[in-house]
Structures are given as structure tokens and as C-alpha cells.
Design a protein around this nucleic acid. Structure first.
Length: 330
DNA sequence: GCGATTTTCCGCCAGA
DNA sequence: ACTCTGGCGGAAAATC
């Protein structure tokens, strides 16, 4: 198997959406784990001055390189999004850096509203691109020479790859892994991450690698909501069938359509919630295990090892120590 | 860490 | 005829 190295730069800025950064970083890290020696994704965070940057949720991101330092060619350059980006004026320094880096990269692109930075740099002209649906019109108005398609999770046009909101950065990264190593590897990464948008609250858009989008009133959406609101309790299939107002057999079929089993979904939701607590707090493992419905730390450990390949304690450590370390604010 | 028990998964079939 | 639903039961997995 050919060794493939991908040196990836993720551009961050004040008020960046933390998930836009953490999502792709997670995916590439998991892909490295699954592929062992046959692939090496190296991710660095790049920003203007290498000052610690505060994300929109208060999390502090520590960049690896400043624009000045990041002069080596990157194979992939991605601009992360953030709520203020659409309204921000053009940033000459960022635009210059992006044009140079994009010209030397195999691929360049954006996550969510990161597309605005590409637009200001003239990198969307004449290309097809997408962004978060809420700002798609604004993007199209601001950069009339770009062809904006708001209905896509991610969109590839030659060397340009753009993606929509929420989990889209994860989907974009999964798509890149799929291109490099095939859909099966991307599936394996996705399974391990169990990408669930609800992790950040709000939107109900699931990763297409795991689930098709679900409309809010459907039985599946009710089960989804119920599970996320009752994570600390036992969630038996029988009980979930009651919530969905269908039989267990039908509930099972509904999940199957979407590539999961009920138990898979519940377990994934528990792991996801636990990951959030492990990443963002110093809450003891015992409490995390209890709050997320694992009942005891031993069971949580077993599930973590099976799904993520590391224990909760290791997960917490690796998250702290990852390149471009994320540290909880406060 | 192992055997017993419970729960989940899913093919098969029947009724709406 | 075709699709959707739900019960049954046994293999497999999870849990105790």
C-alpha cells in the first residue's frame, strides 16, 4: 500500500466555530489510527500571529503556526468558519496568505462560513461552492462570480472543496479520507466518531456517512430527541418503540434505513455526550459514566475502547495533548 | 474473567 | 400485486 502523506493547514481566527476545527482534526486523527502506518495526516492550525484564539463557544485554541511561519507547501488548506465571518471586512493579510497557499496546495477549501474568507481572496471566482444555508444568499450576493449551491453538504469543484454548516467539516474531512483511501475507510472512521450533530445542540443534520437528514416530526426524530434528553437513564428498545409509537420491529427497520441499530444509536449518543464532558470539563470519570447512562466507569471504558480504540482517560489526555491543543476556557 | 441471564438483532411469515 | 406493519423465535451480543 502506497504511503500517502497529507500535510493539512486549518486556518483559524477569533470567534472560530470550535467544531469546524475539532471535526476535521478528529477525522484525520482517527484515520491515522485506522490506517496505521499506511497514511499520515498531519494537521496544523494556522493563524495571523499564533496568539491563542478564542472560539465562539469560549474554548481556547492554540495555533501551531503564524502566516509568516507557515510558508511550506501544504497539500490541503482549509478555512474554518465562525459566526462573525460573513460580516467581517476583507482581511488583506489573510487573503494574500490564502492565495499563495492555495496555489501550492492540491486542494483548498472551507468549512461553513470559511467560504467568505476564500471569496475575499478571489478564490471562489468562477467556481462552484457551498456554505451554511443561512448565509448562502449573502455569499452569493457578495461574490457574484461564484456559483453558490446551498443544498450541498460539501461540494468539490476541481481543487476547491467547500462544505455547509455544523457537522459539515467532519463530512468534508470524511470525503477527503474516502478519496484517499476509499469509502470503507471513511465509513470506519465515521463509525468510530459516530458523528451526531446534536452534540453541539440545535440542528438535526446527521452525517450522510451515518444517517440521512431526518425531519423533525418523524418517529426517528422523536426517538433521537428522547434519547438525547434521557441519556442518564436506561434506554431499552422496547421503551424507544413506545416513544416512536411503533413496534420494536418497525423501529428497528427505521434505524436500519439510516444505517444504524437502535442500540448503536443509543450507545453512540452516550459516547458522544461523554466525549463532550471529557473534552470540556474536569468532571470525574465516574460522574461522566453515570451522567451519560453507562451506569459505571468500567462499562464506559469498555465501550470507549471498542468504539474509539482508547479509554476515557486516554481520550481526555489525547484531546488535551493533540497538536494545536484544545483547552477548556475558564 | 467466566458462566448464567437478559437484551438485541433480524429472517420469516401473516394480516392490513 | 405491492408496500407497510407487527409478532414470533432463535442466534448472537450485551450485561450481570
Amino acid at each position: 500500500m502506497a504511503m500517502l502523506e497529507r500535510h493539512i493547514a486549518i486556518v483559524i481566527h477569533a470567534g472560530v466555530q470550535a467544531l469546524d476545527v475539532a471535526g476535521p482534526v478528529d477525522v484525520f486523527a482517527e484515520a491515522n489510527g485506522i490506517l496505521g502506518g499506511s497514511a499520515c495526516y498531519r494537521t496544523v492550525l494556522v493563524t495571523r500571529t499564533r496568539e491563542p484564539t478564542t472560539a465562539s463557544n469560549g474554548m481556547r485554541l492554540l495555533p501551531d503556526l503564524s502566516f509568516e511561519e507557515a510558508h511550506q507547501p501544504f497539500s490541503i488548506v482549509l478555512v474554518a468558519g465562525g459566526p462573525q465571518l460573513p460580516a467581517s471586512p476583507p482581511d488583506a493579510e489573510l487573503s494574500t496568505w490564502l492565495r499563495t497557499a492555495a496555489a501550492r496546495a492540491d486542494l483548498y477549501g472551507s468549512i461553513c462560513t470559511g467560504a467568505f474568507a476564500l471569496g475575499h481572496a478571489g478564490l471562489l471566482d468562477g467556481r462552484a461552492a457551498t456554505t451554511h444555508w443561512q448565509v448562502a444568499q449573502q455569499l452569493a450576493a457578495l461574490f457574484p462570480r461564484a456559483k453558490i449551491d446551498p443544498d450541498r453538504i460539501y461540494l468539490r469543484d476541481g481543487g476547491l472543496i467547500t462544505s455547509a454548516g455544523v457537522t459539515a467539516g467532519i463530512d468534508l474531512a470524511l470525503a477527503l479520507v474516502a478519496e484517499d483511501h476509499g469509502a470503507e475507510v471513511a465509513q470506519a472512521v465515521a463509525k468510530r466518531l459516530l458523528v451526531i450533530a446534536q452534540r453541539q445542540g440545535g440542528q438535526s443534520q446527521f452525517s450522510p456517512f451515518l444517517m440521512a437528514p431526518v425531519d423533525a416530526g418523524s418517529p426517528l426524530a422523536r426517538v433521537q430527541r428522547y434519547v438525547l434528553e434521557h441519556l442518564g437513564e436506561t434506554l431499552a428498545v422496547k421503551q424507544l418503540a413506545g416513544v416512536a409509537q411503533t413496534s420494536e420491529r418497525t423501529l428497528w427497520r427505521l434505524f436500519k434505513d439510516v444505517g444504524l441499530t437502535p442500540h448503536d444509536f443509543v450507545e453512540g449518543a452516550r459516547v458522544d455526550a461523554a466525549r463532550n464532558l471529557l473534552e470540556g470539563s474536569e468532571i470525574p470519570l465516574k460522574t461522566v459514566a453515570y451522567d451519560c447512562g453507562f451506569g459505571n466507569p468500567e462499562r464506559m471504558r469498555a465501550v470507549f475502547c471498542r468504539r474509539l480504540g482508547l479509554s476515557p482517560a486516554q481520550y481526555r489526555d489525547s484531546f488535551r495533548m493533540r497538536a494545536g491543543t484544545f483547552k477548556a476556557a475558564e
